[in-house]
């Protein structure tokens, strides 16, 4: 919490610490592209909803808010573990870091399970992309997001594997990149949940 550990001989003590982006710049370019795609999707939802308020409100009431809230908790908990994984690797504890990644992966897995049950219930009612505009958006947005969760889990699994085999010089940067991506998936859901499940 203090700067005394920066035992640089030439430090005058006045230079502010360098601002630093965690992770590879390439992943941030990609995150921006993804955020843009979701932004367009969200705005499209808003526009479509404004044109069919009743249809959207009726459809929304049929959604499983408990599942949505549970999934929010799972995602933010997963993110919390990922933050801890990064901190542990920085602290020179790759084993602990790998453990936290496993916990995050478990949260992601929980998200998938909840989603599968949620979809199963909906599909059993014969709801599909072609049912109406609300369900089109509900399925499209959540499925598009779900695939991001899956991709995020693949990334975390790869990172876990490389941590387990012993970290190299680029492992921290890779972990930071993967973490940034995982948090992005979280960030999107934080908008998606109130928008699709709650806001009437």
């Amino acid at each position: 919490m203090s700067t005394e550990s920066l035992a640089l001989p030439a430090t005058t003590g006045t230079a502010p610490p360098e601002r630093r982006l965690a992770g590879d710049l390439a992943i941030w370019v990609f995150i921006c592209a993804e955020l843009l795609a979701f932004a367009v999707f969200f705005v499209a939802y808003g526009v479509a909803r404004a044109r069919h308020v009743d249809m959207f409100n009726t459809g929304q009431l049929t959604l499983d808010r408990n599942a949505g809230a549970l999934n929010t908790v799972l995602l933010i908990t997963g993110s919390w573990f990922v933050v801890q994984a990064v901190a542990r690797l920085r602290g020179g504890d790759p084993g602990g870091s790998a453990g936290r990644l496993l916990l995050a992966l478990a949260c992601g897995g929980g998200f998938l399970v909840v989603k599968v049950f949620e979809y199963k219930a909906k599909f059993a009612l014969g709801i599909s992309l072609s049912t109406d505009t609300f369900y089109m958006f509900y399925i499209s947005l959540t499925f598009f997001h779900l695939m991001h969760v899956l991709l995020g889990m693949v990334i975390l699994a790869l990172l876990w594997n490389s941590l387990r085999r012993g970290p190299g010089p680029t492992t921290l940067s890779s972990l930071e990149s993967g973490a940034a991506y995982w948090h992005m998936v979280d960030l999107v859901w934080i908008i998606l949940f109130p928008l699709v499940y709650v806001m009437r």
Binding site: L21, L25, L151, V154, S173
Partner: peptide, 20 residues
């Protein structure tokens, strides 16, 4: 290494993103 941009990361994103 502020703003590092590695080619291997860019390549991985390309393959991952395309498959996705």
């Amino acid at each position: 290494m502020s703003g590092a941009f590695t080619k291997s990361m860019a390549r991985n994103i390309f393959y991952g993103g395309t498959v996705f």
